[in-house]
Design a binder for these strands. Structure first.
Lengths: 163, 163
DNA sequence: CCTCACCGGTTCAATTTCGAACCATCCTAC
DNA sequence: GTAGGATGGTTCGAAATTGAACCGGTGAGG
């Protein structure tokens, strides 16, 4: 087996270490956020993300599909979680007038309140674990990387039609 | 509301963008890996990770707890997935002689074969989506960041006893 | 030796996620 | 118009994950 062969089948040790550590760090990060959110605010990370995305949206409302895309889940998972949030009184749905197939998801007042209650706690954790470690230079570098990765993901998801 | 107050409750827009994009990118990355693994190799990402960690381990075996820690899941999830892999003939368990409570998880020959079959496909995806975008400088920078984050996670998980 | 706290694993119920199948609506081309 | 494909959502069943409860085994202190 040649060196080139090796490289194409497996990863060079240093590169492999980066990838492994990346997986580990992201999972542990998610885990600690999840735990904090559950313990202190009785809400899951996904549910929190829904609140955030709604609050960020124009008129605090989003079509179901758009929401699913923004929280990066299957549409069915979005349906499920929105129903759950509706039960808690934190979100509501109503029919879209322009397109009878579509449904709007809206943040309720209670939802916004809950978010404002929850955000500081969770954001301080994010700062502590993730953001405070970035100096200006690193933040810029990371932003660039994230943008590149994002573009890669787009390309792979909808493969380029090379005419 | 003062600027400082704002900063402590919410995130400055640029920083917020980094965090949001980080979440999005990591989720989409996981999703595409998962899909590729399922479609082409009928195995989940978690199961693949188990195979990888076992193959990396001394003697291709690991205690159940150690395995759970390395794939970053609850012990019960490790038990479940190992059972699943055992059903597929890709892993086996046996009692630990030194400690009657413990169980070893071992990679079988079939397991190693399956891994060698699967790895190139998935690693090429990881390269394409993630690794190839890193030049030397960025790789070094990312490694440093990952190490810092990892340390942060350690600290928060087992809070420092400040005497 | 006991006792008792801790540790390694498993079991269990509850929650969440996914994709496939499905329904209804929309829209374009004829 | 209307047929047929695409689009927005929901439903459903299967699989995975979690934490709590639990069971033995271990090992340190009395």
């Amino acid at each position: 087996m040649s060196a080139g062969d090796f490289e194409s089948r497996w990863l060079a040790p240093e590169v492999n270490a980066v990838w492994t550590q990346f997986l580990t760090v992201t999972h542990r990060l998610e885990q600690q956020i999840e735990r904090r959110l559950q313990d202190y605010h009785g809400i899951s990370h996904t549910q929190y993300e829904v609140l955030v995305r709604l609050a960020d949206a124009d008129g605090a409302r989003l079509r179901m599909s758009e929401l699913a895309e923004r929280i990066v889940t299957a549409k069915s998972a979005a349906t499920y979680q929105v129903k759950r949030l509706a039960d808690m009184g934190l979100a509501e749905t109503f029919k879209c007038e322009e397109d009878n197939r579509a449904t709007w998801v809206v943040l309720t007042d209670a939802g916004r309140e809950r978010l404002e209650e929850t955000a500081p706690c969770i954001l301080s954790l994010v700062r502590e674990l993730f953001l405070d470690s970035l100096d200006c230079h690193q933040a810029a570098e990371l932003t660039e990387l994230l943008t590149t990765w994002s573009a890669n993901l787009d390309d792979t998801e909808r493969p380029v039609k090379t005419q």
